[in-house]
């Protein structure tokens, strides 16, 4: 009895103590640099120009971003467009594929392994592979697209400002749809059988089963997948950097590419910090809004359930 109480006291005392190392580590490698970045955003730090050693300039950089920087806003809209399209299509295609695998395929292991190949490649390798496939003179994909008449002899996908972004989206689909499939399939496999049996007893058809049983049960998994893909797509860099470097013109200049340019081409670190901060801010807001939207219904229900109990 006494022993147990002592144990509890020691536990309570020890818990924060044991947390200290990880908290310190987080402060050191996450919070610290983040705060430093925010601070840098308020300075004129510039590596290339003399006399810009990082003195405080207030909100100058923010003002410049909001009022003067057309390219930033172009990149911002372009990135949003990229994220919305890519995430929606990947989700639909990935989910459909997961359902297909779940319902109709018995030996899933082989299919899954094959499916996961694009996802397992390093992003830079994906960029390089597609750069060769889409090469405008001898690229294999270009050759077949010309053969079936999708593009003409004078068109090269990566050189065409109207085709290049859709092409990069398709590559992203190729690379990340398997990820959605994998998670959704895991979700489907973990679902309990009872609600289905009950629903079937009540006379529900397949469509009703899907809409009223599967989807609600999968809600947290769906939220997770959309969130992860959304954040990832927002940060897309490697493929675009390798395939086009943001070009032609500014046709594929996503926010991450633009931020890279400001920081590591122009070395305008004060302003670059503001750009990076904006990326962070947007991701944070998107996540929060999204999280609320997906979990709101679920939250309501569980609160009600708690009340009843």
């Amino acid at each position: 009895m006494i022993n147990r109480r002592m144990g509890a006291i020691v536990d309570r005392g020890m818990a924060p103590l044991l947390l200290i190392p990880s908290v310190l580590l987080l402060l050191l490698i996450l919070v610290g640099p983040f705060l430093y970045m925010v601070w840098t955003g308020f300075t004129d730090l510039h590596f290339a120009l003399p006399g810009r050693e990082g003195s405080f300039v207030g909100f100058d950089n923010f003002r410049r971003l909001v009022r003067e920087d057309h390219i930033f806003w172009h990149s911002f809209l372009l990135t949003l467009k990229f994220v919305v399209w890519v995430v929606i299509i990947e989700f639909i295609a990935g989910f459909a594929l997961a359902l297909l695998l779940f319902h109709f395929i018995q030996k899933r292991r082989l299919f899954l392994t094959l499916l996961l190949v694009p996802m397992m490649l390093a992003p830079v390798a994906v960029g390089l592979i597609w750069k060769l496939l889409l090469q405008g003179d001898f690229g294999m994909v270009t050759y077949y697209l010309r053969l079936i008449g999708v593009i003409d002899e004078r068109t090269a996908i990566l050189s065409d400002s109207s085709l290049v972004l859709p092409a990069i989206m398709l590559i992203d689909l190729w690379q990340w749809t398997p990820f959605v499939t994998l998670i959704m399939l895991a979700g489907l496999l973990s679902l309990p059988r009872e609600p289905y049996e009950a629903a079937v007893m009540d006379g529900a058809g397949p469509l009703q089963l899907f809409r009223d049983v599967t989807l609600p049960l999968l809600r947290p998994i769906i939220a997770l997948v959309l969130l992860l893909r959304g954040i990832d797509a927002f940060k897309e860099f490697d493929k675009v950097f390798i395939l086009t470097g943001g070009g032609p013109g500014i046709a594929t200049e996503l926010l991450s590419i633009y931020t890279y340019r400001v920081n590591f081409k122009d070395w305008d670190l004060g302003y670059g910090a503001v750009c990076a901060f904006m990326v962070y801010l947007v991701v944070l807001i998107l996540c929060a809004v999204f999280y609320k939207a997906v979990f709101w219904g679920g939250g309501q229900r569980s609160r009600r359930a708690g009340f009843a109990r």
């Binding site: 090469q135 405008g136 003179d137 004078r154 090269a156 990566l158 050189s159 065409d160 086009t244 070009g247």
Partner: peptide, 13 residues
């Protein structure tokens, strides 16, 4: 730019 007419299709890459 006029030289693009006599260049390969992928010249902008």
């Amino acid at each position: 730019k006029s030289l693009m007419d006599y260049s390969p299709a992928d010249t902008l890459n």
